[in-house]
Design a binder for these strands. Sequence first.
RNA 1: GCACCCAUAGCUCAGCUGGAUAGAGCGUUGCCCUCCGAAGGCAAAGGUCGCACGUUCGAAUCGUGCUGGGUGCGCCA
Length: 580
Amino acid sequence: MNLFADIRELVVAELQGLMAAGVLPAGLDLAAVAVEPPRDAGHGEMATNAAMVLAKPAGMQPRAIADALAARLMADPRVAGADVAGPGFLNLRLEPAAWQGLVRAVLEQGTAFGRSQLGAGRKVNVEFVSANPTGPMHVAHARGAVVGDALAALLAFAGYQVTREYYINDGGGQVAVLARSAYERYREAHGLSPEIAEGLYPGDYLIPVGQALKDKYGSSLLDQPESVWLADVRVFSTDMMMAMIREDLAALGVEMDVYSSEKALYGTGQIEAALERLRKLDLIYQGVLEPPKGKAPEDWEPREQTLFRSTAFGDDQDRPVQKSDGAWTYFAPDIAYHYNKVQRGFDELINIFGADHSGYVKRLKAVVSALSENRVTLDIKLIQLVKLLKGGQIVKMSKRAGTFVTLRDLIEEVGPDVVRFVMLTRKNDVALDFDFDKVTEQSKDNPVFYVQYANARINSILRKARDAGLDVSDASLSQAHLAHLGHEAELEVIRKLGEWPRLVEIAAKGHEPHRVAFYLYELASDFHGLWNKGNDDDSLRFIQGDTAISAAKIALVRAVGVVICAGLGILGVTPVEEMR
RNA sequence: GCACCCAUAGCUCAGCUGGAUAGAGCGUUGCCCUCCGAAGGCAAAGGUCGCACGUUCGAAUCGUGCUGGGUGCGCCA
């Protein structure tokens, strides 16, 4: 049940009635007509811009349209008032019964309340994390992991068919570096001193890999040339790294549907096939790039390479798919990978990337639209940095200094729920401060706590009500006489609940899961406010002498709890029953 | 040099894709506990939405040009 959508349908129907009656010219486009909560509560409960957006195409005064529309809307039993205001807004007030029915809908539908058919079953692929399989996940990956996972959940809630996918970069040079690093640990496991040369990965996490290599291969790889062991060790160690990354993801509550391998694309002809297709579109050619402007590298030599014509899509440079030695660049298998996603029948692709990949956006979008003949859209969400703060100090992270904070460290310190919620308290394209002191603080300043506290308080009230002899099952509460929820303060909270289905669609359309976190904070705030009004006005307390009245009020409390749980469910945060 | 992102209250940030008098939290000031959890709530003060043009009934939001900050820029991924 989406009351805003229902009322918009009503408005559209009445506008069509006005067209049929000849009051408005026929054939007006009603797509821009919106029904929204007004910014200022003083302007009624819902507002429509219909008169203003139609004034020009209809060649009429906004006022005249609004008056005619208002008269027709008033005939609907849900509408209690329709006033023309401002430049031509039509402000609507609904009968309390319409709002009260919303509480019943929440209790009947449970956490399915707010589900939408917006996606209409369209297939969406969300590719996220895709951390290189060369070490454990660290905080920078955590934000992308959380945003991707929450976005996937949000889209599923909004009626899309969602696939969560991880692209394993196991084809490039860095996994060879991993293999060489692991080999040194393998030597170490045999009591030899490892030679961790410049450029190798020094992390301790490779010591168990060396041990495992020893367990599997014994001493057979010792004193052998790289050509003998490299391929095997590379597979072995990337598998171990991926196992570790999967554990990290599981600790964060993220479960992928598909793991795709870059390496698996090599030697299958898929890269060649994708490039051939682009070549037919005249998007692949042999050429020589200009040297980068501004800085003139001394070692620049013009070389002929295989290039992708991304300048045709607004990029500032064509991009090489082959290195000067003929090997593929990272871009080539990525083209094949995205072609593969297109061929798997996805209608929309979403990639969650770190902000350092911003230069990569145009060429990838170009590839997807070219390879799908504009059928498939690719949206790339760039995730900005996370700045860690502890005791007011920035925690400097450096792999070399060994001071980088792993995802596991973070989860062990504050728990997965806090990590997930905090990572969603900013939109993706803004840098985020993760303050260890703040996120565990129990105050309104900490949104995680504040929302959890609302839920805990709701559970506390339900317990008290049960102790007072009330049947607090949803089945029973949904039968409560909700006309008792007539106080303005109560209706205000109900209106907030009414925004939930609308918010789900807005957030899903914009691929903006952070909106859910902000909504929950607002809902929690409204609820705490209502709770406190009971201190001044006894009639607003939830548990009353009259059982019927109590049941109605508890129904509202429970409905708020249901929506909070639904929202937290999308964010992947476990609702707490009790604060400790 | 070029591309992308960001700029909103003293601080940290929202702002529903162009709507009405721009909103929260922190901080400041003043109130509210015999009470369903005060781990809260109410109220006040605080703004040239970086700057300048433009688009239109209407701009924080769209366009162009600046300013400041971040990120990236062939043979890394």
